[in-house]
Computed example of a mutant assay.
Amino acid sequence: MKTILVTGGTGFIGSHTCVELLNQSYDVVIVDNLCNSHSEVLNRIVSITDKSATFYEVDLLDRVALNTVFTKYQIDAVIHFAGLKAVGESTHIPLSYYHNNLTGTLILLDVMANHGVFDLVFSSSAAVYGDDNSAPYQEHFPLSSTSPYGRTKVMIEQFLQDAFVSDPRWSIALLRYFNPVGAHPSGLIGEDANAISTNLMSFITQVAVGQRKFLSVFGGDYPTADGTGVRDYIHVVDLALGHIKALEKLASQTVKSIDAYNLGTGQGSSVLDVIQTFEKASNRVIPYEIMPRRSGDIAESYANPQKAANELGWKVQFSLETMCRDAWNWQSKNPNGYHS
């Protein structure tokens, strides 16, 4: 049985990944500072899996506390989610994003190396493809970003490339997420409505539950089928399972490597597609208003996920309808998130 350290393990994607790790008999140690998540997640994980993850309220900027966790446990690999994540907020407080995300990662890497832990799965983002590439995005495309948040992902990927070149003991998977939505089918864990989110589905479910009067759709004149932006929406459970596949690859390979993988469906859905699918799945009407485009938004973004299929043996299982149904199941049961 292997012990996996999960940074940011009480967050949206982190919590779902911890569930899948426990379901597959990994031991899980979570470190999270709870700045954008809730400790109630830990109780919900137990309810789903009948197993518990060990939890430490630790900020990655606290080297001493992080080192204590590594000293106490024989960690085999790390999944690194922890970091500030709101694109809009990052434009207002960029230095906080750079300090938190970059410095926290550097401390984590240093502590890992000091304890002989070199297997790492990194939570990256499709934001690293910037706005100069054309969909579908492929892993070999040049990287850039239009926000400080995205630039932290680009920079951290470069940190990890340089670390691998300098020390071939490192074995790293860079997982570039597209648009995670949905929730665990139990309705016990999902994206907390009270947390900072720029997730379209989160706003839709808040309208459905009565927390918002209408949905703002930014841009109705894009060169797409219906004029609204097209994105690659992926069920958060599919995304979580991608991390398990990445861990398995790191554990099985005899020659160490660093590789990037797109985790997406490979299909784009417009904002209006998502609204209409959600209405059918929830039997709710979602009022919306078309607003001007937001600066930096692009018309289309979706993945070419073939590399993950070929090298990780991973592919998505859940449809957009399932994503909508599970998101509504979570929100309707937890209208105020984990504070409900």
Rank of each mutant, 00 (worst) to 15 (best):
N199L: 05
N179H: 12
H140D: 09
P185D: 11
P136Q: 07
Y129W: 05
I79M: 12
W170A: 06
V117C: 06
A135D: 03
F122R: 00
D110C: 00
W170I: 05
S134N: 14
T205V: 15
Y129Q: 06
Q206K: 13
G116Q: 04
N100I: 02
T198E: 14
P142K: 11
F159A: 02
E191C: 12
I172E: 01
T205P: 09
T103Y: 05
G187Q: 10
L102E: 02
G182S: 14
D192Q: 08
K153W: 01
T105I: 02
I172Y: 07
F203E: 15
V154Y: 08
Q161H: 14
G182Y: 12
H80Q: 12
S216E: 14
H80P: 06
P94T: 03
N101G: 07
A126Y: 06
Y149N: 13
F214E: 07
G150M: 06
E89I: 12
S96N: 14
G182F: 14
P185H: 08
V87A: 13
G116V: 08
L108F: 06
N199H: 10
S166D: 14
D110Y: 02
F122Y: 15
L174R: 01
G104R: 07
S144M: 11
T91S: 15
M112S: 01
A208I: 11
Y129T: 05
S124A: 05
L188P: 08
H140R: 10
V111N: 00
V165D: 12
L84R: 10
I172K: 06
